[in-house]
């Protein structure tokens, strides 16, 4: 059973909006959007580019390699119907914690539109 690991200070994220951290063998990309922090596996499941080098827009992080757009919360790519692993995040005060265990949706979340 994985435990919470402190990975960054909120203040670091406030500056750049994103940060890559490594916990054991997990390369994790942190994104600050508004007042929420999201954590996704940094290595894109498609062709292994870095998501942290991508763009965050409209609730998704877009991989710079081939524009695959992953929902920040679930990791779901709606068009490709694949899921980028995400991690559970909590922020306590200035401290950002993750549980360094990948979560992947096995089926599509309910379609929205």
């Amino acid at each position: 059973m994985s435990e919470w690991v402190h990975v960054a200070h909120l203040e670091e994220l406030t500056r750049g909006r994103k940060k890559v951290v490594t916990v054991g063998s997990e390369e994790i990309a942190l994104f600050l959007v508004g007042d929420r922090v999201y954590a996704l596996h940094n290595v894109c499941l498609h062709k292994q580019r870095s998501l942290a080098k991508g763009t965050v827009f409209n609730g998704r992080v877009v991989c710079p390699g081939h524009q695959w757009a992953f929902d920040l919360e679930t990791g779901w790519e709606e068009e490709k119907e694949e899921c980028q692993p995400t991690y559970e995040v909590k922020v306590e005060g200035d401290s950002v914690h993750v549980i360094p265990q990948r979560r992947v949706l096995t089926e599509a979340p309910a379609v929205r539109d």
Binding site: V62, C63, P64, G65, H66, Q67
Partner: peptide
Amino acid sequence: ERGAEMYLAKE
């Protein structure tokens, strides 16, 4: 080599 900015260019 500017895929991130390309997303915004599309917008």
